[in-house]
Simulated scan of single mutants.
Amino acid sequence: MVVQEPGTYELVTEDPPEPGPGEVAVRVAAAGICGSDRELVEGTRPAAFVRYPIVPGHEWSGVVAATGPGVEPRLTGRPVVGEGFRNCQVCDRCREGAANLCSAGYDETGFTRPGAFADTLVLPARLLHVLPDGADLRAAALLEPAAVAAAAVLSARVEPGERIAVVGAGTLGALCLRMLSLSSPAGLAVTDPRAGRADTALACGATRFESGPLPAGGYDVVVETAGAAGTAATAIALARRGGRVVLTGIPGQASAVDPVAIVGGRLTVTGVFGAPPAAWTHAVRLFAAGLLDPGPLVTHELDLAEFGRAMDLLRGTDGDVGKVLLRP
C-alpha cells in the first residue's frame, strides 16, 4: 500500500525486495494502523517526519524469510518484531542508548523508509527482537506501541504503593495501564472522555475510570497518552507537588502549559519520543514472559486492500474501535 502524496494511495504489485548486507527480509504477519498513519494520508504530519511516496506501517510482526550477507542464517524462520528508528550507532545519543534521538537525523520505517503495509519488509537485522517460537504474532504486532508505553513507564520510575493516573485510554494508555499495574500501585486511575473505553481500561488494571476530571493534585505519577489539545495541562494539574509527569502525546496544535504549575509544584516533567532499545527490550521481555498480552486491544482485522476502511475506522469516534490490524 503506497501513499503517493497526501490524499492519494493505491495498492501496487512489485517484486519482493531482497535483503542487502546486514539486512533481513521479513514476511509480514500483521501490521497495526495508528494516528500517525492517518497523518501520512491526510498530509498533516510535519514535513521533516515523512518522505513521499511512502509505504506506511511501523507497528508490525512477522517471520524472517531471508537473510542478507553478514547476517546469521539461523534467523530464517524466526518470529520477530523490530525497532523503527534507523540510527547511526556512532553519535553521542546512540552511544548513550538513546538511538531514538540519533543526531544523524530522523529516519524511520513506515515514514521515511518502506514500512509493513506490504507482504515483505526489509530492515537491518540489528533492529530485530526475536520472539519465542510459537509467539502470537497477532498480539505481537502491538509491541511497537508497547515499547513506547514501556519508555513512558520506565521514565516514570514508579515505586510500589504510589498513586498513579493515566490521561487517555486508547491503545497507548491501555498498554501503560497494564505495565503500571505490575508495580503494585496504591491506586491506578484513568480519565478519558470516551466512556466506552472503561471496560478495556479496567481489564488492563485500572482501579478507577472517569470520563470526566480526576482530583487535581492527587497523584504521585501521571502519564499522559492522549495527545489532544489540553491533555498535557490536564496531566500537570493532576500531579501532587513534587510529583512526576510523563508526556507521550503530540497534539495537532499548539498546547499551552503553565510553567508556574511546574516550577511552583516542583514537578519533574519528562517527554517520550518513540522508544529506545532498552524500552523495546523491556516490552518484549514482558510479552515473552506472559506478563503483557496486547491481543485483547485488537478489535478489527482487515485485508491490506481494505486500507480505506481502516482509515475510516481510525477517524471515527466509536469507543468500540480499538487497534486495527492490516493483514497482507
Rank of each mutant, 00 (worst) to 15 (best):
T44Y: 00
L188K: 02
H129S: 12
G32W: 10
S103N: 05
W60E: 02
V222L: 02
G7I: 03
C176Y: 13
R138Y: 05
L40T: 11
F111W: 14
S255N: 04
A150C: 04
D320C: 13
R208W: 07
P215C: 04
H129Y: 08
A310N: 06
R113Y: 00
A30I: 03
A206F: 01
R78D: 10
A261T: 12
A29C: 07
G252A: 04
Y219M: 01
G105F: 00
D312V: 04
R315W: 11
A310R: 02
V245G: 11
A125M: 02
V26K: 05
E10W: 08
E224N: 02
T299M: 07
L302M: 09
G84D: 01
L175K: 00
E59G: 13
T317R: 15
P132Y: 14
A226F: 07
Q89R: 09
E39F: 10
V245P: 02
C176W: 15
A30F: 04
E72T: 15
D107A: 01
V260Q: 09
P132A: 11
V63I: 03
D303G: 15
F117I: 02
A279T: 09
A66T: 07
L304T: 07
A147H: 02
R309W: 03
Y106K: 00
G115R: 01
R240K: 04
R208D: 05
A232H: 14
L11A: 14
G218N: 05
D258G: 06
L101F: 05
G295Y: 00
R178T: 12
P145M: 01
W280N: 08
A198Y: 06
D312G: 14
R285P: 11
G134I: 11
W280T: 12
P79R: 01
A147L: 03
L325P: 15
G218P: 14
A289T: 10
G243P: 07
L137V: 02
L75E: 08
P251W: 12
R244A: 10
D119T: 10
R315Q: 14
L314S: 15
A198V: 06
S184T: 15
K323P: 08
C204M: 14
G22Q: 09
R113M: 00
T234K: 05
G105Q: 05
H129V: 10
P277M: 11
G227A: 11
